[in-house]
Design a protein around this nucleic acid. Structure first.
Lengths: 254, 254
DNA sequence: CGAGCGCGTTGCAGAATATGCAACGTTCAT
DNA sequence: ATGAACGTTGCATATTCTGCAACGCGCTCG
């Protein structure tokens, strides 16, 4: 829509391929050298482009700073909330959103079940980290060494007979979760409550949050709850997409 | 230099602070809404800006993709080389550049000593990982858990009486290196050779490479070599700056 | 239920802005 | 020393962007 800006922005992917000098930029843009120079200057003033010692242009630090700042100021909860509401509309059960922070997994959002029987949980409250589906999802994304380190430091309270008993079992479960891309908690925290969860990923593919649907046995059986898995995963993926900033569509030169 | 582009680019840091709607963007830019709309559209076409479900604008995925691609296509060696040459000019000793890759530390560049007595090393050759200054610098930047995991898997050959003897000593040394921001190897690999090294960091502060100056005892004593430390560190910092894409200068609106 | 408000969007005419040209200055290699 | 390659500048032209005003849409409030 705006030719000048369009041209200027076209320089960025071009430089992402590697450093280039003025002539190369001008050629690939199909404009006069002087035009390319002025565009590069403007990009330079904004720090998006940088001139290395051999005079060639490169993408600059501000680009990274921007990306970083944007990520920091991103609020998963804000983005996820409407999706969680929609999911709750469809299935009626309690929906949770959780993140990992300072050795803990915390609920940061919750949509209450529309059934009379509700489960106990509170936003801001640490999750039972060894059994909760959301905790497994968040920890499963850690690099192997950290996973081991964390698993060994944890306590393994026997909430129920199905709670994760020890570090070895936990690590095995994490490996499974990591591979399949979703997690469950079948009566591991409270005998009568089951959960299915899926991860929410950032633009770099790393897990930034996890969501789950929970319901007591008296409302739906574990099998029925598992049937919601595709829906849960699709919701998580929708949130991931929006959180990451959508898909980059086909680029057309010039 | 180019008003239109200037305005368009000014939108980016603005959105980095958090999502904003058309009116807010127009206000903060000091332009008419229709102008802001067209600029945002152009940014949108390039994927730098994204429209979330509540209609507000946010920084888009392409920004992250660009930053990532730029990093991948960055060649530390290419950027570092002139600096290494300059350092060699000043001190005359052998200068090394190394990176960590696949469980190994590899020399990727070297400027030979101008003294007749040279040390043996070859570009592409794995470094003695438990003793070399560059190896310590690279590993010291790892998160604690990974550091432990790596340290425990290593062998600790006794090249000399001053070689790192075991994992515990190595981890202690890494902690020191991490804190002080530089490293040495005083006769740990070959009895008569000393090194001082400093880390090269990317825009995010993480260590991407390490450089060192090495010299045999017969040319300079360890004390004399250590006197070069400030010079080595300054060189490493200069490379870091250029590798990161320079400093973002003060922003002036409009 | 209807009016009013806020917000995003479009077409248009005027004017500011970007463009290409040609010429100059430097640096580097021959 | 000479030439080529590259980045850089001033300027006149016209292309491109801008602001305005009006429209459409969805919401809220009366």
């Amino acid at each position: 829509m705006s030719q000048t800006v369009d041209r200027a922005l076209s320089i960025l992917p071009l430089l992402a391929e590697g450093p280039a000098d003025l002539g190369q930029v001008a050629d690939r843009l199909g404009v006069h050298k002087s035009t390319a120079l002025r565009l590069l200057r403007t990009l330079h003033e904004h720090g998006l482009v940088f001139r290395q010692s051999d005079q060639r242009y490169r993408l600059g630090a501000r680009l990274f700073a921007l990306a970083q700042e944007a990520v920091e100021n991103l609020d998963v909860r804000e983005i996820a909330h409407p999706h969680l509401l929609a999911l709750n509309e469809k299935c009626g059960h309690t929906v949770h959103l959780a993140v990992y922070e300072e050795q803990e997994v915390l609920y940061i959002d919750k949509v209450e079940s529309r059934y009379p029987v509700r489960m106990y949980s509170r936003i801001g409250k640490p999750v039972a980290i060894t059994v909760a589906a959301v905790a497994k999802l968040l920890l499963a994304d850690f690099p192997e060494a950290e996973r081991r380190a964390v698993a060994e430091k944890l306590d393994y309270p026997a909430y129920t007979s199905r709670s994760t008993p020890n570090a070895a079992a936990f690590l095995k479960e994490l490996a499974l979760v990591r591979e399949q891309g979703w997690a469950t908690d079948l009566g591991g925290h409270e005998e009568s409550i089951n959960c299915v969860g899926a991860p929410i990923r950032g633009a770099d593919g790393r897990v930034v949050a996890a969501m789950s649907v929970s319901a007591p046995n008296v409302v739906v059986t574990a099998e029925e709850l598992l049937r919601l898995l595709p829906l849960v995963r699709r919701t998580a993926e929708a949130i991931s997409r929006e959180y990451s900033g959508a898909v980059p569509d086909a680029r057309n030169a010039l």
